[in-house]
């Protein structure tokens, strides 16, 4: 079955490592769960073990931890202001989780957690839940001003409100689908190019000569995917900040 050997979708299969069904719920430990656990371990290694010395002059790991912190802190402060810093742990956890998931997914034999729509949607839903709960708790009904910008004439106001509501509802979808689709498409492309190499090598001498071409493509694409992985983590974090900013300061 050579077409299975190069099946570019196979890499997204969820494989159950331990079957586990408490209360009739399927909570099996899968390859994706394993990667999440590895992400947790690596982020903790960087942020907790790396900073355990509390050096005045930081070492490599502590420098990396401080840079991660300052990068996210600057993003939060730049987008949502100083009031947004209370969401720093959330944005930081999201950024580090997505960043490590995306980058680890590029390693061979690994698994891309963020290529699962359910994972990215859960993260986006968490962000929107925080936005709505904080917005209503902080501003009450005033939070609804988010949908009715001030200074709009009453005639077009219903349309504006409709558009604002649609754009608000679309946010968790766009936030989750953007990350999911980027990861999915990139990994499929890499696998397709990998499949080309196998097919060309197996197709006889003449086609085998062409095999280095998709290999070159893979090299370039891998670099590009690394960029996308980092960029999408940043995009996820900064959009989270933008949405949180709406909850902090509703009514444009």
């Amino acid at each position: 079955m050579p077409e299975n050997a190069i099946d570019p979708i196979h890499q997204f299969n969820i494989e159950r490592i331990f079957n586990f069904h408490p209360l009739g719920l399927d909570a099996s430990f899968t390859n994706a769960s394993l990667l999440m656990l590895i992400i947790l371990g690596l982020v903790s290694l960087l942020m907790i073990i790396g900073t355990s010395q509390r050096s005045m002059v930081p070492g490599r790991l502590q420098s990396a931890a401080e840079m991660s912190y300052e990068f996210v802190a600057n993003t939060v402060r730049g987008t949502a202001g100083d009031a947004g810093m209370k969401f720093m742990p959330l944005v930081f956890s999201l950024f580090m989780f997505v960043f490590f998931a995306n980058v680890l997914g590029l390693l061979p034999f690994s698994y891309t957690v963020t290529s699962q729509i359910v994972v990215t949607f859960a993260l986006a839903a968490l962000v929107m839940a925080v936005v709505i709960i904080y917005g209503i708790a902080k501003h009450g009904t005033h939070f609804l001003n988010l949908f009715a910008p001030s200074g709009v004439s009453p005639i077009i106001l219903p349309f504006i409100v409709l558009i604002e509501v649609i754009s608000f509802v679309a946010r968790p979808i766009s936030l989750s689908v953007r990350l999911f689709a980027n990861m999915l498409a990139g990994h499929i492309t890499l696998k397709v190019f990998g499949g080309f190499i196998v097919l060309l090598l197996g197709g006889g001498f003449a086609t085998a000569l062409l095999a280095p071409l998709p290999f070159l493509g893979i090299v370039i694409l891998t670099a590009f995917e690394l960029l996308v992985a980092v960029l999408q983590a940043y995009v996820f974090a900064i959009l989270t900040c933008v949405y949180l900013n709406d909850a902090i300061h509703p009514g444009h």
Binding site: S33, L40, V43, P89, M96, A122
Partner: peptide, 20 residues
């Protein structure tokens, strides 16, 4: 695959958030 993913995500992301 949705449920196991969500359950483990909640556990692990919750732990990550708590640690951070």
């Amino acid at each position: 695959n949705f449920l196991p993913q969500i359950i483990w995500l909640v556990i692990i992301f919750g732990a990550l958030y708590w640690l951070m």
